[in-house]
Design a protein around this nucleic acid. Structure first.
Lengths: 198, 198
DNA sequence: CTACTTACTTACTAATTAGTAAGTTTTTTT
DNA sequence: AAAAAAACTTACTAATTAGTAAGTAAGTAG
């Protein structure tokens, strides 16, 4: 027997997953350079060396974090409940993801959390983040293209340009929400909807 | 005699100014939690304690940085060469500021540099940044309102909402430029111009 | 039962961090 | 010229950082 992939009822996540989950929370709420292995260890009730066992260096941890997010994106965009939607509902599904971040203690998105400190990040992490952003932009561009072709979405310019603009605005809107409150996020998303939906 | 405010030909900036300038560069290029008093001291050719003399804590330095930027904004928007312009040219002047950041080694803007780590910042710094963003948004809202009233700018929704959206997009666009290259910034700003200018 | 692997803990190092206290040099004021 | 203030340096502390090496306990495989 090679592996045993039993369907566990999502009860107790293992330490590795708990590390990733907590690190993700801290990354999106405080920034990558604002938490240490000690912080993680203390809150998880283990010793710092236990984190080093799973992720030898913080670079490894960071890269694993972005890689996991990229896997999630690829899985999400391929889900039947997403691919089966029309362009407007796909856009709504995307906006729901950002609104969900807002609801979770005003977390910024992965991109918004890492962009400012980008030059201090390990190269593999940089590469994963570039891929993440590129694939998400391409996905939305296709949604927008179909939406305009079928008359359910309206915008001028190329779908690629509009996609980059919309995603950039969403990333920034979560940052503005962090600095002020939820209001400007709602205002900005309202403006996006107003312009895109005829 | 109280002070001696001689007009020096902008020759040798004093240490305090050199500290602020270097700290600003590092902040906008690497993030606030990514440089230390040692980094500053080494590059300036002084001892770390010299930085502490001018800015007792890093909180003080950070707050002084944002406060200076806020003073610059207030001065800039009141300059005759800015107030005398029409709305379209005022918008262009704003875009030129961001394009200038792009040209300076793809620096992000102050807001984009601090938003992700916002919760780790000292309270006075948070307050200054909120004021900075609020005043800039109000200024642009007025520009947009006049532009639409005089028929030189076009958009739907309230000037306040459009202003928040545009500024958020610009901050995000500099971050995207950092992660990829200058191209997406140009694409996004091109899209903004396309939509705003009839 | 034995060997091995997994998942840790204990105990440590070397570097870096912000910050302070006391002393020294330079500049300014009187 | 003397006094005082400004702008530092030297020398230090206490805390925190990432990371390592060695040991251990529990589970797994043969």
């Amino acid at each position: 027997m090679i592996t045993k992939a039993v369907a566990i009822p999502a009860l107790a996540p293992d330490t590795r997953t708990r590390i990733l989950d907590l690190a993700e929370t801290l990354l999106l709420e405080r920034g990558f350079n604002a938490f240490s292995y000690q912080h993680l260890a203390r809150e998880l009730g283990v010793k710092p060396a236990a984190i080093h066992y799973h992720f030898p260096s913080k670079d490894d941890l960071g890269t694993a974090l972005v890689a996991r997010q990229l896997r999630r994106l690829r899985k999400w965009r391929g889900l039947p409940r997403v691919t089966n939607l029309g362009p407007v509902q796909q856009l709504d599904a995307l906006l729901a993801v950002y609104e969900n971040h807002l609801g979770q203690d005003r977390r910024v998105c992965l991109f918004g959390a890492l962009a400012a400190d980008f030059r201090t990040l390990p190269a593999p992490m940089q590469a994963e983040l570039r891929t993440f952003n590129r694939e998400l932009t391409e996905w939305l561009a296709e949604v927008l293209a179909v939406g305009r072709a079928t008359g359910t979405l309206r915008f001028v310019g190329s779908p690629a340009a509009k996609s980059a603009q919309v995603l950039t605005t969403l990333a920034g809107a979560l940052q503005v929400a962090r600095v002020h409150d939820e209001t400007p996020f709602q205002v900005i998303v309202g403006q996006l909807r107003l312009e895109l939906l005829p």
